[in-house]
Simulated scan of single mutants.
Amino acid sequence: MFPKNAWYVACTPDEIATRPLGRTVCNERLVVFRGPEGKVAALEDWCPHRGAPLSLGAVVDGKLVCGYHGLEMGCDGKTVAMPGQRVRGFAPLRSYPAVERHGYVWVWPGDAAQADAAKLPHLPWADDPAWTFGGGMFHVRCDYRLMIDNLMDLTHEKYVHATSIGQPELDEIVPQSAVEGDTVVTRREIPGVKAPPFWAAAMRGNGLDDSATVDRWQRCRFVPPANVLIDVGVALAGQGGFDAPAAVKTSGIVVDLITPETETSIWYFWGLARNFKPEDAALTAQIREAQSKVFQEDLEMLESQQRNHSAQPERALLSLNTDYGGVQARKVVQRLVEQERAAR
């Protein structure tokens, strides 16, 4: 269903700032917390004493303390102590590789021996002061592949997002897709149009004339296991589109980091990275709010899709030429899943 030998976002740092967090990732029930010196750690969310969720406890001096009877756990999954009891002989819990990077806490739910921080997604904007980022997280009740389909075929913007990022011309230009190893890229260039409301507002925020004719682009890049990074933007018409000088364009990277919770639910970490006016906190908040509204429009459709799929799982889906990117992304995922099964 989903590759497990991969890095997934478990949470944002603020979610574990004051207490441990329980979160399910790829059907694995985890507790994520900060151990000694604030280093992130992840264990099974299960107290070896009576099976209580450790996420209902607290972190004291770098140790995870169960909120039921006070059993203390180390970051390696071994029991450390319990008031008035001898517990060091308890079998250790499973620990999961965890890394804090790019503003997220990542976990590896598969074979820990294969975990390698070098395999984390490349997000260069996250550590570049010329860029800023604003985003959030949604819990969505749908198969993670439905979200990937949604992000790799943006034709739906004309219908689902008619009042924000959609426009009629999206139907008129068929996107071009290509497979580059495990990466799938879908491109759509829309020349000589008026900017839709979201982009018109972003142009104003960037000091550009929002009534001007623009060239618009969407470049969706699927990176396994379930991440989609989309170069988006508009430039004054005839100035080079995606390659136009910064002075005549407004652009960014839509960041979509998808973490399967179960077969029919996900944690969806989203946002926009931009390199224009990175110091403008008010603009960041404005864009975040507008983007949140756009994504909430997707949620109703995706969860309704899932209800249909769950009710009639035997029904096949039809694919059009605009679905090519999503179909190829699914093939990459399926190949990775089959490779893991064959290696067991």
Rank of each mutant, 00 (worst) to 15 (best):
K277Y: 14
W131K: 00
G70N: 02
R307W: 09
Y144D: 04
P225W: 10
R315T: 11
L320K: 11
A98C: 12
R101K: 14
K4C: 05
K293I: 12
Q306E: 10
G134I: 04
A329E: 09
L93V: 06
S319H: 11
T262C: 12
P224V: 01
K158R: 08
A212I: 08
H309A: 15
V327S: 01
V107C: 01
C220E: 05
P3I: 03
T284E: 07
S95C: 10
K158H: 12
E37Y: 13
G181E: 13
H156T: 02
D128H: 05
A115P: 00
G74Q: 02
W199I: 09
Q176T: 09
V234Y: 01
L93S: 10
R88T: 13
S310W: 02
A112C: 10
A290T: 03
A311M: 07
V40R: 01
V25P: 09
G238R: 14
K277N: 15
P109N: 15
L208T: 09
T186Y: 05
T24R: 05
G181S: 12
A329T: 08
M73K: 07
K39Y: 05
N275D: 14
R29V: 13
D61L: 03
W199Y: 15
M82E: 15
V214W: 05
V80W: 01
D61P: 01
G181L: 15
H102Q: 15
I230G: 00
Q114E: 12
V337D: 09
F133C: 00
D280M: 00
H139W: 06
R288W: 02
P124R: 07
A126Y: 14
H156G: 00
S211T: 14
L283F: 09
N150P: 01
G35W: 08
L283T: 04
R86N: 15
A235M: 11
V160W: 07
E289W: 14
G134M: 03
A329C: 06
M147T: 13
D45G: 06
E100P: 04
K277R: 15
V9D: 00
Q339W: 06
D153C: 04
C47V: 09
F133R: 00
R315V: 12
